[in-house]
Amino acid sequence: MTGIEFYVVVLLVYLGTDLLAAWGLNLEYGISGVANLAYIVVIAAGAYTYAILSLGPDSGNGGFQLYVVGWQLPFAVAVIAAAAVGALVGVIIGVTGLKRIRQDYQGMVMLVISLMAVTVVGADTGFLNGQAGLSLIPNPFSSLSPAVGDWAYVAMVALACVIGFFVMRRFTGGPMGRALRAMRDDEHAVAAMGFSVIRLRLMSQAVGGAFGGVSGALLAAFIGGWSPGAWAYVETLALLTAIIVGGMGNDMGVSLGTFVIAVLLLQAVQFLPQISSHTGLTEALGWIILGVLTITFLWVRPQGIFKERRPFYRSPGETERSAPGDSATGRVAAPRA
């Protein structure tokens, strides 16, 4: 496998896992209205869950790393467990928003949770091997030759994205998307209509968290390692930027935003010539551009490049007269931009 080919593989896996995470966060923020600034924590929860459920006991490999649990479960089971843990952590984060406190206060709480999780995991070496993190996390295709195994991994991530997209559409489109958006716009009015805001919100957090958990598991299995350095709170901002730039609440917009921000932008800066002697400049530039983009879009075009679409309903009297071909989709005509 050539260097370029491997680079493409890496990019595709990053794109796939970023897409899953961005869709999950978009469900929480774009559709349901909770800017989960601790979203990276559910991704990390998924990654760690996968790792400790597939690494085997921590006495293996010479016992150089310490962690809890230490099972050796099949890949699929470990990923599903990662989704479940992601959902659980998502719900726990979501509970902090249930108290009737201001949105910005909620945001601060979640930011603090994000910072706190990194500190706690980093401080305790017996839990998840502390600051050094976990390595040698098994890849399900390690028995294949690297060329075949890497592309098999890409294919698997692609499959996860296809399934993920259809699952996500059940929540973001149609009646459930409508109910969640109503909650986003006015949660008191939604409660006055007989909806349980708690249930709707926790459902959104659970589904969003499960997506993050799967994203983290697939990422950790591919990279083979996971440590506190991989999930600093700023990572959540990269996903938020993708959502805000692409268009909150618009699945295609968010997907495009993820491609442009998480892949193109963060990779493009790597190709800049080293204009300064010190390392870390290109990474710093990436974050600066990201922050400036977020602020610019919230200022100039808060709805993003692709604004949220709503279905167009024809009146009952109009359907008889309407153009043929509509019958398949009922009265819902093509969404109007």
Partner: peptide, 19 residues
């Protein structure tokens, strides 16, 4: 700008300054 938007802005501005 909504409160959630505002907190995202101050976080973003913080990241810009930091980097």
């Amino acid at each position: 700008l909504q409160p959630f938007g505002l907190i995202i802005v101050t976080v973003s501005a913080g990241i810009v300054v930091q980097y």
